[in-house]
Design a protein around this nucleic acid. Structure first.
Lengths: 206, 206
DNA sequence: CCTCATCTGTACCGTTCAGTACAACCTATG
DNA sequence: CATAGGTTGTACTGAACGGTACAGATGAGG
């Protein structure tokens, strides 16, 4: 029985709401959800308390908005990148992008979706379902890229693209976790090359 | 300049300390580190506040003790199980054990080490280093099992066992994260079978 | 049985936190 | 320019938290 807070009705309101969500997303990625206070978010966003409770109801509402925001940005962006994959070289470039993102952040951030999942899966079932849906879509986008390779005659008919996609996403998520813990980008590179090599073993083009 | 708290000097003290660590480990696995208050730990352990601050100094000290405890139990146990691997069937049994552990907990716990890593990597560098060392040892135990298969003539000389071990651990960690979020053990089974199938592709016995 | 270090119970403290109250402020519309 | 709905600033509250103080219990060695 949670009253849904009103969506912003003016451009100014929309801007305020978005500033708060983005500040919250940034701080929560860095420090974690529980360790990020609403006051810190508001200071970062340059907003007052009434705005947060006006647009999100409570902290849980803010957290869910952050999850939705991550889905709309990170996962949606991954979908675009994967939709452009039409060759093995394209797929390798996509893997390179994952690596480059981590190197750019000096292995401090990991996957913005995965880290939320780690903290929220047992704490808020609504967030958990949002994140599960995001992961599933992501996985399907990978599978679709593999299916496209197959349709182009580049990938063996024997390959189980759904299983390969599930394994690819799992490996990437795990590798990002390990990389963030060990601060060793070389390990990430090794793992990504290994899983790409495995996918490539289904290459039929030669 | 952190004074190290004294180790227990009597059997009673050791028992108290251990009860506190185990209660903390259980609660932190379930709810997360930040969301577990010291008062909740003490209630669960049936101990008083003075005991906790006597043995651990502060909450951070308790957290580090929990990390060390997880290392000594989970990772050490994995090392034992992996040390017993002498055939492909043994290795498959080990994978089955990972799956069984998740099914037993109805996909609610994930990897006790991995979930700590997700929450602590950016918050306490000492914990981060402990966890990184634990992961590295775990990875080496997997590589050693693969090396043993190779020595027995069961695994191709062409296999890069270190890279395969890194990928295997990463995939398992990621799969546990995804499984805890989606609550779908079938996905875990699929991924584990897929990575085992990949390792098996280096099988020279058959 | 004394003694002293170790261990433990409990009351307390200051801070921080999420959340509320309420008045004031815009700004689009008529 | 009136006004109403949407938006914002700020002071406040009660609870929960990590941490401290200190007295009392316990038990092993002399």
């Amino acid at each position: 029985m949670s009253r849904t807070p009103p969506a912003p009705r003016t451009a100014k309101g929309r801007d305020s709401r978005e500033r708060i969500v983005e500040a919250a997303a940034a701080l929560m990625s860095l420090r974690g959800v529980e360790a990020t206070s609403v006051d810190a978010v508001l200071e970062e966003a340059g907003a007052g308390k009434s705005q947060l409770y006006h647009y999100f109801g409570d902290k849980q509402g803010l957290v869910r908005a952050v999850v939705a925001h991550r889905d709309e940005t990170v996962v949606h962006r991954q979908g675009e990148l994967l939709a452009a994959v039409r060759s093995w070289a394209d797929l390798h470039e996509w893997f390179d992008g994952v690596l480059a993102g981590q190197v750019a952040s000096r292995c401090r951030v990991g996957c913005p979706v995965g880290s939320l999942a780690g903290e929220l899966s047992e704490r808020d079932d609504e967030s958990r379902r949002q994140l599960a849906a995001a992961f599933t879509r992501w996985e399907q986008d990978i599978a679709a890229a593999l299916d496209r390779l197959r349709a182009a005659g580049l990938l063996s008919a024997a390959a189980d693209t759904a299983a390969l996609a599930a394994m690819t996403l799992a490996t990437i998520q795990g590798a990002l976790l390990l990389t963030r813990t060990t601060r060793d980008p070389q390990r990430l590179r090794t793992v990504l090359e290994e899983v790409f090599g495995y996918l490539r073993s289904y290459d039929t083009s030669g």
